[in-house]
Amino acid sequence: MSKLSMRSKINAKEQMEMQYWNIEEFNQFLNSSKYHVHYIVFSLAIYTGMRRVTEGMEVLIRKAGVKKIRFHDQRHTNASFLLAIGINPKVTAERLGMTPAMFNERYSHLLPIMQEEAVDKIEAELNKYAERQLETAEK
């Protein structure tokens, strides 16, 4: 089998027409998004092709002394953080643009910890109730 035919088979599902903006569309997009909270991300992506963003991130990672992660891994960091602070997994999935099934497949390893936390919270509430009942009974 030739290299060309192998490459065609491997990339058959991934091949699609490259999409890009002309200069007018580029300017129109940036002008219309100027006051959007993500404007800086859009403009950096367009002006630098994301190379400068990832290079800048590497510098900041070294400065902070944290483990190196990819730019995309910030998405996973966000999902993990939302779950850790008790945001409902369905809401977290929606914020990431994922279906609950997709989300569960990707992040289910984080959910057992949440189950333990849920049990701890339920137990704490039940203990508070029991203490109030005892106080009332003693009076």
Rank of each mutant, 00 (worst) to 15 (best):
A101H: 12
F26E: 13
E17I: 03
N31Y: 10
E116Y: 04
V119T: 09
F103A: 00
K63C: 13
K3P: 05
I69H: 04
R70S: 09
V66L: 06
S43W: 10
F42R: 04
F42H: 07
T92Q: 00
N88I: 01
M98H: 03
L60D: 06
A130S: 13
H76L: 03
M57A: 07
E138Q: 11
N31A: 13
M57V: 07
E135T: 08
M6E: 11
G56I: 06
H72M: 09
Q15A: 07
L83P: 03
L134I: 14
N22Y: 04
V119R: 07
H109N: 05
N11Q: 12
S32T: 11
Q74C: 14
M114H: 02
V37Y: 15
H38G: 08
G56A: 06
M1Y: 08
K67Y: 15
N11V: 13
I46A: 05
F42S: 02
I46E: 03
N31I: 12
S5V: 10
L96A: 02
A79T: 00
I46S: 04
A118Q: 11
K68R: 15
N78Y: 15
T99M: 11
G56F: 11
E14H: 12
H76Q: 03
F81M: 09
E138S: 11
A64Q: 08
L96F: 02
N104Y: 13
M1L: 12
Y20H: 06
A84R: 11
I40G: 14
A118H: 09
N11G: 12
L96S: 01
F29A: 02
A137T: 08
L96K: 00
M114I: 01
R70P: 11
E138P: 06
E117H: 11
E123C: 14
K34M: 05
W21F: 14
A93N: 03
Y35D: 09
H38I: 09
V59T: 08
I87H: 00
Y39N: 01
Y35R: 11
A45I: 05
D120N: 14
V41G: 12
L82D: 02
V66Q: 00
Q74F: 15
R51G: 10
A118Y: 13
I46N: 04
Q15R: 10
Y35Q: 10
N11S: 13
T77D: 13
T99Q: 10
A93V: 00
M50D: 03
F29M: 10
P112L: 07
R62S: 06
N104H: 12
M1C: 12
I10P: 04
I113S: 15
N88R: 01
Q115K: 10
K121S: 08
Y47R: 13
K128I: 02
V37H: 15
N88F: 00
Y107W: 07
K9P: 05
Q28F: 13
E24P: 05
L82M: 08
K121I: 06
Q15E: 10
